[in-house]
Design a protein around this nucleic acid. Structure first.
Lengths: 206, 206
DNA sequence: CTCCAAGCGGAATGAGGTATTCCGGTTATC
DNA sequence: GATAACCGGAATACCTCATTCCGCTTGGAG
């Protein structure tokens, strides 16, 4: 977000700033972090010049979007966890939220993909860690309660959310069309109450 | 594959052609269909000029790679299915094969992603259909035998294989590092003998 | 109502990246 | 030993963006 040291923005400028942030968010969720600036501009219904009057560079815009996005993610996740009866329902609700249209676990991608410039932003890093901690609590609680299988970790959850919800236009059509279907398949796989013929190979990350 | 109407290739040229095809395959599996030609050349240890003496355009090379790849995939899949005691072991072995290094279910990607030029190649289309038919038989048999859950389809299988094994460098690190881990998680989700609290949302594609 | 700084759209610029071509030097094969 | 095939890789031609620039608009203070 641009610093607001100086004079307040004119009404139309403030309006455009909102449109830009929201367009940028959508575009990034859909096309990934290297979507062209012009796509954002068109989506926001403004000229590229307008983008650059508010954000000096592409990275600045991405950074602002990322910060706002993770902050939202933390809020939503906390609300879900607090409102749920138990860890398993919380997990299910979280998954549904991530699968809802326009949501996309972008933060998950940001958490894993190499975008040094963004990850280095203090506000982003703080929120991101907060989110990971929330998930960590959720997974641990579920495992203690015996509803989430013991041999997976938070990193697995993040990886799965990322894989099924990020950048729909680079995913197989089926997955992009019904992320919820695949996320629920994943839920079935995480269910501790199912019998397992063989142990999971590899090690839980994070 | 270049037509061999004309004179046979010189020995060194034939050698290079092999290196090119294999390099191209690896590069495409790793970096996706839009990997630069020069990457292929370097990997093959030849100059770009050599690529172009054999393949008139990038598409021609990709087409040749795709045809060869799906053909291999069909062979491997058929071998696995024929050799396995039952559909479920076949599925497990197939998954392990796809997870093995350098394998990557490229064909799955090709099956789903829009690469018209390649999909239109008759030999490719034929092999691809053959592969889908094999999988279809596998899934159906498994479902009849009660080992593969009934509410998923071949398209789901293809989508999952694609998602976890294609283009490692665009995947979350954890997934790229241990595709087998995530594919086995998927196997657990496909297991018909596990109890399911809620039905899977959406519809099985294909 | 007037004025003008703050805004705006979008064409123009420039850098970076990659498919394809070209050519002087090699090397199988006869 | 001759020569048609081959090679490597520099040079060329495009194309895709990020970013800049500038003439036109407009919110809103006076």
């Amino acid at each position: 977000m641009p610093t607001n040291d100086a004079a307040p923005l004119r009404a139309d400028a403030r309006r455009n700033l909102t449109k830009i942030m929201s367009a940028a968010r959508d575009v990034v969720v859909e096309h990934g972090l290297d979507a062209p600036m012009e796509l954002v501009a068109r989506r926001a219904g403004v000229g590229v010049g307008t983008l650059y009057r508010r954000f000096p560079t592409r990275e600045a815009l991405l950074g602002a979007v990322a910060e706002a996005y993770v902050a939202d993610l933390v809020t939503a996740t906390r609300r879900i966890i607090d409102g749920a009866a138990d860890p398993w329902s919380a997990l299910r609700e979280l998954v549904d939220w991530c699968a809802s249209p326009g949501q996309g676990a972008l933060a998950a991608a940001l958490a894993d993909l190499p975008v040094a410039q963004v990850r280095a932003l203090p506000a982003f890093a703080r929120s991101r860690q907060e989110w990971l901690d929330l998930l960590d609590g959720l997974v641990t609680d579920g495992q203690r309660a015996g509803t989430i299988r013991a041999d997976i970790g938070t990193g697995d959850l993040v990886a799965l959310l990322t894989v099924f919800t990020c950048h729909p236009d680079q995913l197989p059509r089926h997955v992009a069309d019904q992320p919820a279907r695949y996320l629920h398949l994943m839920l079935d796989a995480l269910d501790a109450t199912a019998p397992r013929a063989t142990p999971l190979p590899g090690t839980p990350p994070s």
